[in-house]
Simulated assay, not measured.
Amino acid sequence: MTDIETTSLHSPWFSAAVAVLPVAAALLLGQWATFPNLAPWYAGLAKPVFNPPDWIFGPVWTALYALMAYAVWRILRLPETTPGRGIALALFFGQLALNALWSWFFFGWHSPIAGLLNIVPQWLLVLTTIEAFRRLDRTAAICLVPLAVWVAFASLLNFAIWRLNG
């Protein structure tokens, strides 16, 4: 590899692209499954009293995806030889894939049970990612804490919807 190629792979722009593009793809893939199924399917489901209004999901997820991109960008900027970096990135992208798949399981398949079978391991993977990030960059780990809280809440909501409609 030439010096130019090595430099470009370690540029801030390359790291930003590797951070932002997969997160944006997860967001778009999730929306692709969600939006066509909001009405009439999701609108017709019985929901628990603690179900937030529909308008809250967009702003919350936008903020969470922005925090995810920033957190993984911080980890990507660490030297490749940093112990634990590779596993931390694998955990992050694993939880991101489960995040995108949840929308397909729950909304795309019209299956709260499939969503539940995805979201519990997803939450555990988010927690594991936070711990892996904490060992490398405290700020990156803190950026994922709101995601862990929201996914925990979403797990309870998913469970309640499954119970009410099962």
Rank of each mutant, 00 (worst) to 15 (best):
A16Y: 00
A17K: 03
A17W: 04
V18L: 15
A19V: 03
A19K: 06
A19E: 07
V20Q: 05
V20W: 06
V20C: 05
V20K: 02
V20R: 06
L21P: 00
V23M: 06
V23I: 05
A25E: 09
A26I: 01
L27A: 15
L27F: 14
L27G: 15
L28A: 15
L28T: 10
L28R: 06
L28C: 08
L29A: 14
W32T: 10
W32A: 12
A33H: 06
T34I: 10
T34Y: 02
N37G: 00
N37C: 02
N37M: 12
P40H: 04
W41R: 02
W41Y: 12
A43F: 00
G44N: 08
G44R: 11
L45I: 08
L45N: 10
A46G: 05
K47T: 04
P48Q: 13
V49F: 12
F50C: 08
P53D: 15
D54H: 06
W55G: 11
W55H: 12
W55N: 13
I56E: 13
F57R: 02
F57N: 03
F57W: 15
G58Q: 07
G58H: 11
P59E: 14
P59V: 11
P59F: 10
W61H: 05
T62K: 07
A63R: 03
Y65N: 08
A66N: 06
A69M: 03
A69G: 09
Y70T: 13
A71M: 02
R74P: 08
I75V: 15
I75Y: 10
R77W: 08
L78N: 09
P79K: 14
T81E: 15
T81F: 00
T82N: 02
G84A: 11
G86M: 06
I87L: 13
A88H: 04
A88D: 13
A88C: 07
L89G: 04
L89F: 10
L89E: 13
A90N: 09
L91Q: 14
F92M: 10
F93I: 08
G94I: 07
G94T: 15
Q95N: 13
L96H: 02
N99C: 02
N99E: 09
N99F: 04
A100M: 09
W102C: 08
W102F: 11
S103N: 09
F105H: 03
F105Y: 12
F106L: 05
F106P: 00
F106I: 04
F107D: 03
W109K: 11
P112F: 02
P112C: 06
P112L: 07
G115K: 01
L117Y: 02
N118T: 07
I119F: 06
V120C: 00
P121R: 09
P121H: 13
P121N: 13
Q122A: 14
W123I: 03
W123S: 12
W123R: 06
L124G: 14
L124S: 09
L124H: 03
L124W: 08
L125P: 01
L125D: 02
V126Q: 07
L127V: 11
L127S: 04
T129I: 03
T129S: 14
I130T: 09
I130H: 00
I130P: 02
I130K: 06
I130C: 00
E131N: 13
E131F: 12
E131I: 12
E131G: 06
E131L: 14
A132P: 11
F133H: 12
